[in-house]
Amino acid sequence: MNKYVKIIIAVAICLTVGYLSSTVTQASIQTWYPTIVKPSFNPPNWIFAPVWTLLYILMGIAAGLVWDKLESDKELVKKGLFFFAVQLALNALWSYLFFGLHNLLLSSLEIILLLLIIYETFLIFKKVDKKISFLLIPYMLWVSFASVLTITIYFLNR
């Protein structure tokens, strides 16, 4: 399988996870989410879909490029893709905890774990190929911001 097919598969997986997460989000965005207190730095709702779409594409490209390095460093690539899969699952879980269950405490704790796993994925990808790891930096920055936002929302709504 060539590099571009791997990238397409990885991007499709990331976008699918994003889409499935958005189905949980959409139900609450019109009902529950407007009723909670949010900080002044909370972005407008319309910004989330394009930002997440771009992030899922960048994540998928990074994963596909790392996957393409499987023959050159099998153990490290497998480890990197394992951590990538874990962070992707945690990414989806956050939407369920926050928007599905409306559990602000659990989603605050979970997003910290998510950020740590993203960082570990970044470090492993960096060992595979430094340039590839740069594709995860916007994701780490956004989830860092989302962590602050989630935790702030928790404290504002206790």
Rank of each mutant, 00 (worst) to 15 (best):
T25E: 08
E71T: 09
L113P: 10
V128G: 01
L97E: 09
I61L: 05
Q30N: 09
S40C: 01
L20Q: 12
L76V: 10
F82Y: 15
I47H: 08
P39C: 02
K3T: 14
L105C: 02
S108H: 06
N91I: 13
I124K: 11
F99V: 03
V143H: 00
L20R: 10
L114Q: 04
Y119D: 07
G64M: 09
K74S: 11
F155K: 13
K38H: 01
V24E: 13
W46V: 13
W67G: 01
K79E: 10
F84P: 00
I57W: 06
A63K: 05
V148L: 15
D129G: 04
L116H: 05
L106M: 15
W142Y: 00
V77N: 08
D73S: 07
E71R: 03
N103F: 10
K78S: 11
L113D: 09
T152F: 12
L55R: 00
T53W: 05
I132D: 01
I153W: 06
K131P: 05
I47E: 09
L149W: 07
K3A: 09
F155A: 12
F99P: 03
S108P: 11
N2S: 05
F155H: 12
A146L: 14
L65I: 08
W94E: 07
F82L: 15
F84S: 12
L105E: 07
F82Q: 07
F83E: 10
L156K: 10
V24H: 12
V5K: 12
L135F: 06
I9G: 08
F83R: 14
V128Y: 02
A63F: 07
F41C: 07
K127P: 04
L65P: 15
L116C: 14
L20E: 06
L76W: 08
W46S: 08
K78M: 13
F99I: 09
V11K: 11
K126Y: 05
A92N: 06
K74I: 11
K130P: 07
D73F: 02
A27K: 10
K38A: 00
L76N: 04
G60V: 02
L114F: 13
M59P: 02
I47M: 14
K130N: 11
I153T: 15
